[in-house]
Nucleic acid binder design. Structure first.
Lengths: 135, 135
DNA sequence: TGTACTGTATAAATTTTGATTACAGAATGA
DNA sequence: TCATTCTGTAATCAAAATTTATACAGTACA
């Protein structure tokens, strides 16, 4: 998870939450996040798949939250961008070694427990909670 | 944290724990993990800095645990390999935007809370606990 | 119909990560 | 002393992941 996807998605959602009901363009969002608008549109495309935002095409179009910020949890953002385990990846150890043969089974179990733990933690914070920190 | 360092370090420590008191060579370990011996030595070099293993140079040399497996926690492994936040990196947002200006402060706080949470969880599992899963 | 958007593909550039090679230096023991 | 077997570390290269940039078709609006 050595990327900026969580940061980008949360930034997008924060902007939308602070402008609830207003359609924000990818150009506007890109200006705040300071990345290319196409990258924003790609991330928004994913957030749409996850039912977190809705978009309107054409002139005057843009994106809004799919539901109130109080009903979006940070675990939803985590789920939206999750690609790998928070503790990293496994090796491809030697199956002819007694340890190598079963280490990945135990390691993956630990990885998944840890992911679940993080996810659980993030269910306790809503987007509204996060946005309220902004002055 | 999109790398195999946690996996590699834990694999190394597992081998050492299962052979407590015996000096294992980097070649032997590399054979089990299935990576180059130099990579293992590099990872061991880091584990030494973290006081988790000790090495002996020269013929008959190798590495052993610096203390019993019951006194090594998985959070020690986490600390040893930690480079980035578990949820990823931040962007470099636009400081001229009200949101861009302060998003990283809140985001980093969340990142650090989450890291601490994971770390805390991993303090509850010792290397001995992990190794006991092996049949 | 012109303008302002989204959606998406593709390519290029950059950064991160991993693999490999090489070799100096340390310890051992014949 | 000397050959052997290790560690420690640097340097390089290859591969993979990530980010950036460009382009353009399609949609909606006025």
């Amino acid at each position: 998870m050595n990327n900026v996807r969580f940061a980008t998605s949360l930034h997008i959602l924060t902007l939308l939450a602070l402008n609830e009901g207003v359609y924000l363009s990818s150009d506007f969002i890109a200006g705040s996040v300071n990345v290319n608008a196409a990258a924003i549109r790609k991330e928004i495309s994913n957030l749409k798949l996850c039912m977190l935002v809705e978009s309107k095409e054409g002139k005057g179009g843009g994106s809004i939250l799919a539901r109130p910020a109080s009903q979006i949890k940070l675990s939803d953002v985590y789920d939206a961008v999750k690609q790998v385990h928070v503790l990293g990846r496994s090796n491809t150890p030697n199956p002819d070694c007694p340890v190598g043969k079963e280490v990945n089974r135990h390691l993956e179990a630990l990885y998944e427990d840890t992911d679940d733990y993080v996810r659980q933690k993030l269910t306790t914070v809503t987007l509204k909670d996060f946005v309220q920190k902004f002055g």
